[in-house]
């Protein structure tokens, strides 16, 4: 991993903003709706180029989401922009009844996901969106790992039938995928094959998993690493095949353990191919203020934590 030049790092919210721009150029039906966080969600890039297709709602996420349903019912492809806490939580019933129930092509970009939001503290650190969104029928949930993947996921969301929730980060992250990498919602990316343990990660934790791999290599532990950018629909084949091969799994997410990506993997494997699973995530507590990487450390979301979990999982085989 040679990614120490932080000037090249970008947030996945930046990828979302670029994806919206690309969609704006290519598809005249794409409209962007924002709830007063236009600059923070990078919706302002679209707004500047396509002011006639940008709609401002003020601090009213519920109204924004149901209005998006009206747009979709009229053949438009809306993207709703807010922080993850408000987009998934404040407007949950609107997402459920106005959007998911009708299986509309309404896409939701929830930025500021996870503990890495930093100093704003618990009220603004979304740790629940994967759980809240994946329980909804028809809903797809995607947590891209870097700028490029976020851009591709945003474009893909517009052309995916039904609603898509995009979980995006505020913090700048290294770009670990390549422009030419293929991306498909629902298709996991196997970054590396190894026979001792499978690490399944999404979002910021994909990078952490790759750093953990450096630690594991020194201990002669060969890991399979899966970038599970799509939590729903889950790529069951990729996950089960990896479990069969390595016989132990570690899941890594910057999200509550209850109901998140790790839970989705556990639901799948426990019914199809039970193996020891260790889960890295936030355990039944709210976040707090601090710098992003201080918090990542405090909440045990670091490469060392992943490597330790791998050893625990292997010992339980």
């Amino acid at each position: 991993m040679n990614n120490q030049d932080k000037s090249t790092w970008k947030g996945t919210r930046d990828g979302y903003g670029k994806g919206l721009l690309e969609l704006g150029q290519k598809n005249k039906d794409v409209v962007v709706l924002s709830a007063d966080l236009t600059s923070s969600t990078r919706a302002d890039w679209f707004k500047e180029k396509f002011p006639d297709r940008f709609f401002s709602f003020g601090v009213a996420e519920q109204d924004m989401v149901s209005t998006a349903a009206g747009f979709a019912l009229s053949g438009k492809i809306p993207f709703c922009c807010s922080f993850g806490v408000f987009a998934s939580g404040r407007a949950w019933d609107q997402v459920r009844t106005s959007v998911a129930y009708m299986n509309l092509n309404v896409n939701i970009g929830g930025t500021h996901g996870g503990i890495s939001v930093g100093p704003d503290g618990a009220t603004h650190q979304a740790l629940e969106e994967i759980a809240l969104m994946r329980v909804l029928p028809h809903m797809s949930v995607v947590a891209p790992c870097d700028f490029l993947e976020a851009k591709k996921a945003t474009v893909a969301a517009a052309y995916t039938p039904g609603p898509v929730y995009l979980r995006l980060s505020r913090e700048n992250l290294p770009i670990i995928t390549k422009e030419e990498d293929e991306f498909e919602i629902g298709k996991a990316k196997i970054l590396k094959n190894g026979s001792d343990i499978t690490i399944i990660a999404c979002g910021i934790m994909v990078y952490q998993a790759m750093l953990a791999d450096e630690i594991l290599k020194k201990k002669n532990i060969e890991a399979t690493i899966i970038n599970l950018h799509t939590i729903k629909p889950l790529d069951a084949k990729a996950v089960i095949n990896a479990a069969k091969k390595t016989k132990a799994v570690v899941t890594c997410e910057e999200h509550l353990l209850a109901g998140g990506m790790g839970s989705a993997v556990a639901e799948l494997l426990s019914q199809n191919y039970p193996v020891p699973i260790e889960m890295i995530g936030v355990n039944d507590r709210f976040g707090e203020s601090g710098s992003p990487w201080e918090l990542m450390k405090k909440f045990h979301l670091m490469p060392e934590d992943i490597a330790d979990a791998c050893e625990r999982a292997i010992s339980r085989k």
């Binding site: 709609f55 519920q62 109204d63 924004m64 989401v65 149901s66 209005t67 998006a68 349903a69 009206g70 747009f71 979709a72 019912l73 009229s74 809306p78 609107q94 009844t97 106005s98």
Partner: peptide
């Protein structure tokens, strides 16, 4: 929720 949906249709 209906008036918001109607507004989306109107826009």
């Amino acid at each position: 929720m209906g008036l918001s949906i109607a507004n989306g249709m109107a826009l």
